[in-house]
Design a protein around this nucleic acid. Structure first.
Length: 430
RNA sequence: UCCCCUGUAGCUCAAUCGGCAGAGCGAGUGGCUGUUAACCACUAGGUUGUAGGUUCAAGUCCUACCGGAGGAGCCA
């Protein structure tokens, strides 16, 4: 008999179906066994009544252990007591494999234990919901650019040089030469934008920073659009429209998962265009109102970002930071040489920076001077300078960190749950 | 790299002033025809992270190391 997925079970009321999955939990009451069976699309209660099945089937049901793989046959019936409105009256049960004693119990576990068992933790309903939201976010990101004439141009993972300095990169041996795992595809996207106009890349990036916070991973995913002939304002328009679109998609397609996560959906529904846009100088003024005095030229710490974000009910764009706390390729503000034409987007509710980007320096001589000022080896950037030698145009782009975005939309305390197998300062396995 | 907390049964935790290592969950056995982290009864389960030290006596105090957690800094 053909397999029926639990998500489709309501269409089969009164029919005999076959469900293949795993035993999520079991309760029993003498002659009745209540098997909670999950198949990846949902969980359904399968009721085994001693009077309805053979001695063998009832015995197998009695002996079935948590997370054993099973094939259940039975009749779908509506039941008001069920969370999904239906249950299955079992007629036959086969055990594909009888699971050993399952390490993850129904009650409390510490984070360390759960992270050690991440490969099994993925089966729990909460982790399941988070990764379904992540999947939707990734799809929404791709759809957004694909539907707007962008071309996906994948950036390399192995890179010969750092964007700026080598202290935060993972070094590898590349046939006797030093290579680094990429920390951004941006420089390659700039070259690609001059070929295709509108491009994006989406892939993993790596940072060897010894950061031990709820917002950091050593391996995380980033989507980086880059557009020829865009200035800073175009860039901010794009970032705002993009983030509003992604949030709307999750609200449209993943509400049940947000419910499982007990996310305050009203806060997400407020994420509508336009987003507030403030300059770095205005941000300093807001911080001062809250009694925090950041000297001009300093970057914001986590507390300051949270304070700024809490000032608004939706993501806020902060633009024109001091040039000295930004990368060499950022274009200087023509109205104030001390400032860069850059923008960060801070997520609400203390989730921090989810986007960083800006307009790039498009003048050859200025860029050469900046590379020198930053003490970077010019020969390594010759190919990048070529982009300015042959038909340079104003252009801009940004990078959005997927994990911080997932953490924000799901309302999670820590980014470690937003990626299937997180890589962190003290954690490489499983 | 720094600061702080922490390590006791498979898991989550308790153990008063340094004085008999205990509970819940999970597991096993038995019971129960509507359970929703089911419930009830019984059973098993321990080199208290490791190595030293102080003491009549250390899970408890001290030192070092190892693991875990939170925070800071770092962080296109």
């Amino acid at each position: 008999m053909k397999q029926t997925y639990i998500s489709e079970i309501g269409k089969h009321e009164g029919q005999k179906v076959t469900i293949r999955g795993w035993l999520y939990n079991k309760r029993s009451s003498g002659k009745l066994h209540f098997l909670q069976v999950r198949d990846g699309t949902g969980i359904v209660q399968c009721v085994v009544f001693k009077g309805d099945v053979s001695e063998e089937v009832f015995g197998r049901s009695d002996a079935a252990t948590q997370e054993s793989s099973v094939v259940v046959q039975g009749v779908v019936r509506a039941d008001k007591r069920s969370a999904i409105g239906f249950e299955v009256g079992v007629t036959d049960l086969k055990i594909v494999q009888a699971a050993q004693e399952y390490p993850i119990a129904k009650k409390d576990h510490g984070v360390g234990f759960l992270m050690d068992h991440r490969h099994l933790w993925l089966r729990s309903s909460r982790q399941h919901a988070i990764l379904r939201v992540r999947s939707e976010i990734v799809k929404a990101c791709r759809d957004y650019y694909d539907e707007r004439g962008f071309t996906l141009v994948d950036a390399p993972i192995f890179t010969p040089t750092a964007c700026e300095g080598t202290t935060t990169l993972f070094e590898t041996d590349y046939f006797g030469e030093k290579a680094y795992l990429t920390q951004s595809g941006q420089l390659y996207m700039e070259a690609a934008a001059m070929a295709f106009g509108k491009v994006y890349c989406f892939g993993p990036t790596f940072r060897a920073e010894k950061s031990k916070t709820r917002r950091h991973l050593t391996e995380f995913w980033m989507i980086e659009p880059e557009v020829a002939f865009y200035d800073l304002n175009d860039d901010m328009d794009l970032a705002e429209d993009f983030v509003a679109y992604v949030v709307a998609r999750v609200l449209a397609n993943r509400r049940p998962e947000l419910l499982v996560l007990e996310r305050d959906v009203a806060k997400l529904e407020q994420v509508q265009k336009p987003f507030p846009r403030i300059s770095y100088d205005e941000a300093l003024a807001i911080l001062k109102e809250h009694g925090v005095d950041v000297p001009w030229g300093e970057d914001f710490g986590g507390d300051e970002e949270t304070m700024l974000a809490n000032h608004f009910d939706r993501p806020v764009l902060v633009h024109r930071y001091p040039a000295r706390c930004k990368a060499f390729y950022m274009k200087g503000d023509p109205e104030d040489a001390l400032k860069a034409l850059c923008v960060d987007m801070l997520a609400p509710e203390g989730y921090g920076e989810i986007i960083g980007g800006g307009q790039r320096e498009d003048d050859l001589e200025t860029l050469e001077r900046k590379i020198e000022e930053h003490g970077l080896p010019k020969e390594a950037f010759e190919w990048y300078l070529d982009v300015r030698r042959y038909g340079s145009v104003p252009h801009a782009g940004f990078g959005l960190g997927i994990e911080r975005t997932v953490a924000w939309i799901c309302g999670l305390k820590h980014v470690r749950e937003t990626i299937p197998f997180p890589r962190m300062l003290e954690r490489l396995r499983p």
